[in-house]
Design a protein around this nucleic acid. Sequence first.
RNA 1: GCGCCCGUAGCUCAAUCGGAUAGAGCAUCGGCCUUCUAAGCCGAGGGUUGCAGGUUCGAUUCCUGCCGGGCGCGCCA
Length: 531
Amino acid sequence: MKFFYDKVSALLQGIVSNNYKITLDYPVWELPSRQKFGDLSTAAPLKIASKLGKNPLEIAQEIKEDLGKRVSENIKKIEIAKPGFVNLFFSESLLISELKEIIKYKQDYFKGNNNRKVLIEFVSANPTGPLSIAHGRQAVVGDVIANLLEAQGNQVKREYYLNDQGRQIDLLVLSAKERIKEIEGKECHIPEGGYQGEYLKDVARAYLKEGNGGSLYQFCLCYIQSLIKADLDKLNISFDDWFSQKKLIEEKKVEEAIEALKEDGFVYEQEGALWFSSTKFSDDKDRVIKKSDGTLTYFASDIAYHYNKCRRGYDKLINLWGPDHHGYIGRVKSALKALGYKRKDLLTVVIIQLVSLKSKQKMSKRAGKLIRFSELINEVGKDAARFYYLTRKDSSHLDFDIDLAQKSSFDNPLYYIHYVCARIESIFKKANSPLDEEFSKYLEEPQELDMVRFLLQFPLCLQKSYYSLEPVFIIEYLKELASMFHKFYEKVRVLGDDPKKTKARLNILQATKEVLYFGLGILGIEPIEEM
RNA sequence: GCGCCCGUAGCUCAAUCGGAUAGAGCAUCGGCCUUCUAAGCCGAGGGUUGCAGGUUCGAUUCCUGCCGGGCGCGCCA
């Protein structure tokens, strides 16, 4: 679909007054609070004026006259505002004809036509234990970003990078071994830096019962991977692929990548170790890829992993990492450039900030242990967990308020949104009159047109989220939409005495429902038909 | 010491590549149910945007320097 504002924008872009290029500042989806400034606004006169040393109001006047001549049938009025804005107000017929498009095309109205092959890698928590609440946030944000990418028409693969080799795994297996000893009544010493968690006792017990003397390493890995999968399943998140680091190493992909770097002269030896000269790109210092004891670093396999992603033909890579990895971005990007993948926006790393829990009952304080992600889900449920994980920007620390998420009252924004679904469904159940094509002239209340305006801005919200990879904007939009709907509901009675007006208003409800359901669909949250 | 994130109403947060009167929700106070679900709506109070400069028509936003908070700076993964 070509979005409404794209169409209008295209309409206006043909208009260049005396070679002034007009850029459109508004609308954005926050518009209702600024509605007096019009449906579209531009500060172009100010910018042009400062360049040319002219009076901005005179330039605004020129633009107004030029626009007025060319798009009069779709524009109700054009205003000039100090110190040099031009504000356009759309005609009602333009707004309503677009509302009809939403009702006609339904969910397809919001879909984009990008077509990139995108690989999004997220969570990728070490398989040494169940997920933490911070991983939960990465999981939800990653899943929603993937939904957004898909809705914009891209081919998306969700991938989990499984660090199934290395010291952490060794420590895990050693710790499990000690737990087995413990169960067998022998002395038990969890190694320095090992894993103390209760779940390892479960692993040990399960191994003794069903392990049949097989590889403890294999058993631990499978067991814990299934724990992680179960946690993700509670959020309704699944991955297309679990990419094994071990396999990468066994298949000599790391050596291959190092060879490729060597060929181009980006590798050197010093003090018995092998270094990648990442400072030749945009890193602070060079990085070791093979240690002096001959083993490879984690970074080396990460180079190979990203090399592999590119060779699989993806033209866009997105990684979601925790804030402890931010220092890592430069070296991975450097490696990709060194390997010949120079496209500037090839790799985007989204840093997801940490999560803390807030609750009056001190459920998180149990003997200083970290609260497990699965406990959180059990407390608040899938939809509330998904919703609240998305209420802050990726780059902001999130304080998860468990009490609020559990509340079924009006200060819980998810309930506020769900209440819209319930009210709409309830009206449709009682209405039983079909939608009418010829409703345009029966929409005249300000609340009705406000609803239409706001609904038409939803694609802008989607685009904003899409380009910034910030799902929070959809949350904010839906909260605003809910607020507008409840106002509309109070002021304008849908099922009234005038059947023409009723039909017209049912059209608004229908379009609201399409927007709401599409938005919730992206967020992975179920609508509720009855409350 | 260096890098990243953050600092906005009593609390939790918004504020569109720099835009117009810095907005919501909670909490507080006051109104609205014989009518589509009051889990809602309407109204009031509440601000020197951490501090000090700079850039310009215009700064919460950009730059510099401080103050305060979080995280990271390995031949760990």
